[in-house]
Nucleic acid binder design. Structure first.
Ligand code: FES
Ligand code: FES
Lengths: 141, 141
DNA sequence: TAGATACTTGACTATTTTAGTCAGGTTTAT
DNA sequence: ATAAACCTGACTAAAATAGTCAAGTATCTA
């Protein structure tokens, strides 16, 4: 099980943005330089974040992006959802009544993976951008 | 983030094996048929489980595999470890003092992913094969 | 109003990982 | 002897990932 760069970058970029949010729109170029993320890749990511109303764009010279909600209202769940980073532990289709083995009953481990999925999603539900920023200031990394 | 088939199958096969463990060695062919997993793939998986002493093999006609420990002593962690299904949330090398951005400090989100990794591993630490079997009997799926 | 900055979009691609398959063994009960 | 079942390593097709690239459009500032 691993986290993809897309999800990792999305959160990283938003933390960066949130730190500078009060003053001016933050340009992707700046985030790219500070965090070492490809500019083109960031553009893909922010396009998705914008469509899900997590950020707002300001076009033109001196433009950039601004948070569209308060930092404590943006949960990791929202971010991951926006960039299609989903937690997927079961093999079978959620809706289908068939198991992953093609049989009509769920497989021996289906419930386990379901529990795991909930366990992970709980973590994402609880963490907000604000938490991350606080954490960064406290630890001074 | 998703769970791979290898990890899923490893656990599924072991639950199946554990259910029949008292009587005779269980052949991979039977597990393959019951759980709908490719026999060749199962062989790869069990080879690893054997090397980590989670199962024992019985060669020859009427042979198969047997659990090498009690079901309550086999945690998910052990299984995942054996088949190299690892949880990897950080990008940077664990040992290296460099961050994922190549800089000397850890990135803004490093601590977050570390927490996440622990959160997930906790789940795997707590669940044993025995828990899974009980769960199956209770729910009768 | 020209030019620079920065957002916007969509298509394309190299690399890596996954999820197996395949072929050829060896061991042992009957 | 022979069949069942373990054992091993190499190979591969398909999918996912992590980007790159190209061609825009909008807006501020000089
Ligand atoms: S994971 Fe849902 S049936 Fe196997
Ligand atoms: S994940 Fe460890 S430094 Fe970024």
């Amino acid at each position: 099980m691993k986290l993809t760069s897309k999800g990792r970058y999305a959160v990283m970029a938003l933390v960066d943005l949130a730190k500078f949010n009060d003053i001016n729109p933050v340009s992707l170029r700046d985030i790219s330089l500070r965090q070492g993320i490809s500019l083109d890749y960031l553009e893909q990511i922010f396009s998705k974040l914008r469509k899900k109303a997590i950020v707002q764009s300001v076009r033109g010279n001196q433009g950039g992006y601004v948070l569209n909600k308060k930092a404590n209202e943006i949960k990791l769940t929202n971010i991951f959802d926006a960039v299609d980073e989903k937690v997927k532990t079961v093999q079978c289709k959620k809706e289908s009544k068939k198991g992953c083995n093609g049989k009509l009953t769920k497989c021996l481990t289906h419930n386990l993976w379901d529990e795991l999925e909930n366990h992970i999603n709980d973590f994402f539900e609880k963490k907000s951008l604000e938490d991350l920023i606080k954490d960064n200031i406290e630890r001074r990394i």
